[in-house]
């Protein structure tokens, strides 16, 4: 079992990267089913379990940055369990889901603790140190690989059922809480943008954008187009008022 567990772990590491980088979608269960089936020596069962998981997982995609249950670990553990235990694919799904949810909680944590690294990146940017920026990105990839490989290895080596029992001892409120926090998290990024972009004269446009989304529930593209319409109006108004060459005096009124 050791050899198989190592091979599956390597595959999990690779597709753990593909889930966020590359996005060739070799991380979908329909592909994982084939690969895990090959490793465990039963391609047909692998395909069937992978295909079943795929149909169930179809809607679980990272919409607008929200994190669905982790399809990488769910797919790997689900198909491996289905092939090893010869279980009905539906049961394999039941085993896969707790892992997929727990792992997504861990990914949320990883995205949180990786934030301080950005200050190192700021410093590299200030020094125009391209190598440093590249190193930080490669480090992120390395962590994703190791993280997914380890998480996939343990339950397959020690037996998925025992591992599932362990995962279920993590209190539900912690997993839920991390996912709630993940939903709120974009607020921080938007606040940082506001901090950079906002000027008193622009507040009204911010309010308009908010109203269009909150009350009228318009999609972002529509809001951008309305913003564009206002901007175009404003642009030509100003241009006509000030004549064609406002270039000199504009430089004076900086921040």
């Amino acid at each position: 079992m050791l050899m198989e567990a190592i091979l599956i772990a390597l595959w999990a590491g690779i597709i753990g990267i593909d889930l966020y980088n590359g996005l060739t979608h070799i991380h979908r269960p329909v592909v994982t089913g084939l690969v895990v089936g090959l490793i465990l020596g039963d391609v047909t069962t692998g395909l069937i379990v992978g295909g079943t998981l795929e149909l169930i997982w179809m809607g679980m995609v990272p919409l607008a940055g929200a994190q669905p249950p982790n399809v990488v670990i769910g797919g790997v553990i689900g198909t491996a369990f289905g092939v090893i235990a010869g279980q009905d694919p539906k049961v394999a799904v039941g085993v896969a889901i707790p892992f997929a949810v727990a792992v997504q909680g861990l990914i949320t944590l990883f995205f949180t603790v990786f934030a301080p690294v950005m200050h190192k990146a700021d410093q590299y940017a200030l020094e125009a140190n391209a190598k440093g920026i590249e190193r930080i990105n490669y480090m992120g990839l390395g962590i994703l690989f190791v993280f997914n490989a380890v998480i996939a290895f343990l339950p397959i080596y020690f037996g998925a059922e025992r591992a599932a029992a362990f995962v279920e001892t993590v209190p539900q409120w912690i997993i839920d809480g991390l996912s709630v926090a993940g939903g709120i998290m974009p607020a921080i990024g938007f606040a940082m943008l506001l901090r950079i972009m906002i000027k008193v004269e622009y507040i009204m446009f911010f309010i308009v954008g908010f109203i269009l989304a909150a009350y009228l529930e318009l999609p972002i593209l529509a809001i951008a187009l309305i913003g564009l319409a206002i901007a175009l109006y404003d642009f030509y108004q100003n241009k006509n008022k000030q004549g064609p060459t406002p270039k000199e005096e504009e430089i004076a009124d900086g921040i």
């Binding site: 943008l193 972009m197 446009f205 954008g209 269009l212 989304a213 972002i220 809001i223 951008a224 913003g227």
Partner: peptide, 11 residues
């Protein structure tokens, strides 16, 4: 202007 309208909507 476009950027801030969008940020308002994004929030």
């Amino acid at each position: 202007i476009v950027g801030l309208t969008v940020v308002g909507g994004l929030i």
